[in-house]
Design a protein around this nucleic acid. Structure first.
Lengths: 208, 208
DNA sequence: GGAAATTTTGAACGTTGTTCAAGACTATGG
DNA sequence: CCATAGTCTTGAACAACGTTCAAAATTTCC
C-alpha cells in the first residue's frame, strides 16, 4: 500500500490544523490562551480527538515550539564575512546574530517566550529531539567565535557559544520583561550591540 | 487603640503562615505545587480564608517573591575594593556579584525561577513595589561600573548595569535549564567568570 | 452582657486537562 | 458491492484547580 489511507491523511490534516490553531492561540494570548476546548472548536473536532493525535497538550506545545525554532533559525542567516579583517568580521557576525535574535523575539514575543517558559510537570521528560533543536541555536555562534579566538578548543568554544547565546537571550528576556520597564526596541538593539561587542572584544583580548 | 486587635494579629499570623507554606510548596515542587487547598490544609485554615488575606494566589506569589528578593540581596554583598587598582577592583567586584547570583540561583533554583517565570493573567498589572524591588538588582552593579567606566552618563550606566545583570541572568538561566544539558555548578561558575570578565574588559576598552 | 460588625467556613461554581464507552466510520475479503 | 472486523471519533463525565459567598462563628464595642 503505497498511497496513504484516508485515516492517515485525516490524522495529519487534524494534526496540522491543531498546530495552526495552537499557534494562533499562543500568538494572541500566550500559553494561557491555548485551551483544549477552544482548539477543538476552532478546528471543528471533538475535544477527545486532540488526544488521538497528541498525547498531551504539552506534546502539542512542543510541536509549536519546533515550528517556532524553524522560523527563528531562518532569520539567523550569518552575515557574509568581508575577509578583510577576520577579527572585525567575526564581531560583526556576532552582532548581526544577536540583533536578528532580538528582532525575532521582539516581533514574536509570545511564541518566542513559549520556547523557554513552558515547563513540564514533574517527572515528565523533555523529548531529546527538542533538546537537540534548542541546542542548535548555539551552533550558529561557533563559526564567528572560531574566527575570533582560533586557539580555543572545540569544547571550550562550544561552551562559550552557549554562554554568548545565553547572555544575549538574557538581555532580550529582561529587556522585554513586563515585570520591569519595557525597553523600546531601538534601545534594546543598541544594548545588544554594545554588549556583544564588549563580550567579543573581551574574549578576543583574553585569548591573545 | 495602640495595641493590635485580635483580628489583626490573627490576620498577620495567617498571612505569615500562608507565605511560609507557599515557600515550602514552591521549593518542593515549583509554582505548580502551590495549591490553594493544600496551603489551607498545611496552615490549618479553610480555603476561603486565603482570600481574606490575599486577593489572589498571584498576590501570595508576589509576597513570596518579595522574600526571595530579600534573601537574594543579602547574598549580594559587594566585595570591598582594594583601591590599589580601581580598574581591576571593579572587575573583581562584578565577577563577585555574578558568582553570588549564580550561587543563589543554583541553591534556590525553584524560588529563584518564580521571580521571573510567574506570569500574570492578561490585563492584571504588576504591583509597582515589585517592579521597583526587582529593578534594585541592577543597582548593585552600578557602583563597580562607575569605577570601570567613569565617563559614562548616569543614564547610560543604569542601562549598562541592567544589561550586565541580564547577561549574567541569561547565562545562569540557560545553564540551569532542564530543556538543555544542565551545566555542573563549577562549569557554570567558570562561564560566568569568563563572560563577566570579558564584558567588563570590553566595556572598559570602549570607554577609553 | 448583648448587639453589631467582622471573620471564618466549606460547599458550590466555573474552568481546566484528560478519559473512555458508545457510536460512526473505514478498510478489507468474499 | 456488501458484510464485518477493525479503527477512529465523539462528547458526556471525571478529577483537580482557583475562586466565591451565604451562613455560622467569632470578635469588638458600648
Amino acid at each position: 500500500m503505497v498511497y496513504e489511507t484516508k485515516a492517515v491523511v485525516r490524522r495529519r490534516t487534524l494534526r496540522d490544523a491543531l498546530i495552526a490553531a495552537a499557534e494562533r492561540a499562543i500568538e494572541k494570548e500566550g500559553l494561557r490562551g491555548m485551551k483544549a476546548r477552544e482548539l477543538a472548536h476552532t478546528v471543528g473536532c471533538a475535544v477527545g480527538a486532540i488526544y488521538n493525535v497528541f498525547t498531551d497538550l504539552d506534546d502539542l506545545i512542543f510541536a509549536v515550539n519546533a515550528l517556532t525554532l524553524e522560523q527563528l533559525e531562518k532569520t539567523l542567516t550569518v552575515a557574509g564575512g568581508d575577509t578583510a579583517d577576520p577579527h572585525a568580521d567575526a564581531i560583526k557576525a556576532l552582532v548581526h546574530l544577536g540583533l536578528a535574535y532580538t528582532d525575532y523575539a521582539t516581533a514574536n514575543t509570545r511564541r518566542w517566550r513559549v520556547l523557554f517558559d513552558h515547563r513540564l510537570p514533574d517527572g515528565k521528560q523533555v523529548p531529546t529531539w527538542y533538546t537537540a533543536n534548542l541546542a542548535r541555536l548555539f551552533v550558529y555562534i561557533e563559526e564567528p567565535l572560531r574566527k575570533l579566538a582560533p586557539a580555543l578548543s572545540p569544547a571550550r568554544r562550544a561552551l562559550l557559544a552557549r554562554s554568548l547565546f545565553s547572555a544575549v537571550h538574557g538581555i532580550v528576556l529582561v529587556g522585554l520583561e513586563e515585570k520591569l520597564q519595557h525597553l523600546p526596541l531601538p534601545v534594546l538593539r543598541e544594548q545588544v550591540t554594545v554588549m556583544v561587542e564588549a563580550m567579543a572584544k573581551g574574549l578576543a583580548q583574553d585569548s591573545k
